[in-house]
Amino acid sequence: MHPAGSIIVFTALSGLGFGMLFWLGLGHFTPTYWTGFVFFAVAYALSVGGLLASTFHLGHPERALKAFTQWRSSWLSREGWLACITLGVMGLYAAALVFAGAWLAPLGWLGAVGSLVTVYATSMIYAQLKTVPRWNHWTTNVLFLGLSLGGGALLTGAVWPAIVLLLSTAAVQVYAWRAGDQRLAESGTDMATATGLGGIGAVTAFEPPHTGGNYLTHEMVFVVGRKHARKLQNIALILGFALPVLLLMLPSSHLLALLAIGLHLAGLFVLRWLFFAQAEHVVGLYYGKR
């Protein structure tokens, strides 16, 4: 799949933002007044900024509000609703902390659950697609949630939860990469079933429908990422997980925390780029590109 910048920014930043809101809502750390303002401002900048970035991916962003209508069937629509409800609930919770110094625990817990469900809905946009076997798996949900919660813990200074979550998410990520390489073959969809000609003999693509590319080949038959995939995976593991955890183990300081967050963010962008670039859409079979 084509790794569109706006979608990478959307999933990475909004995931981090809702992860922060989860930990702020849970109440292990309830910053008030100016400190509270800074933490909630960062969380909202990430979550709302990510959601806004997603609109740059749209052909007609001026019609984006129509996306709230189909929550009964569409995960994309549900994600929009859940994000807005969660941001609303957490807005009230944040206002109480920032302006009155009051901790409204039940409201925070509601917002924490909302944050989790929102990230789950984001992950389902991808995990629901049978057409992309690598995504159509529970690891997609677990990775989105793990990265969101781990990154959120990192950003809210929850040191031990951050270490545990980042390490376990890294383990799931390694498994997802290894197992994901086989998933297209295991899906049962191949050129034989795509063309229905497998009963006659071995099918190979002889001639594409046209000499140039098209929307399908540009969007879903993206192959550039394969060449350096292994190296990028190692870079992502080091930047996103290993170095931040190492820095968290050192005596705490704001500078080290900031460095850990920066490294994690860089690793997260590499991870998300790979998430799209490595995903094989079955339509590529029709073009003999799988």
Binding site: L58, Y215, L216, M220, V282
Partner: peptide
């Protein structure tokens, strides 16, 4: 009503939809 998000084209295994 189409916002051009492209998700339907991703969901189609046959490549029947083009932006």
């Amino acid at each position: 009503d189409c916002i051009g998000c492209g998700l339907c084209a991703w969901a189609c295994p046959y490549g029947a939809r083009e932006m």
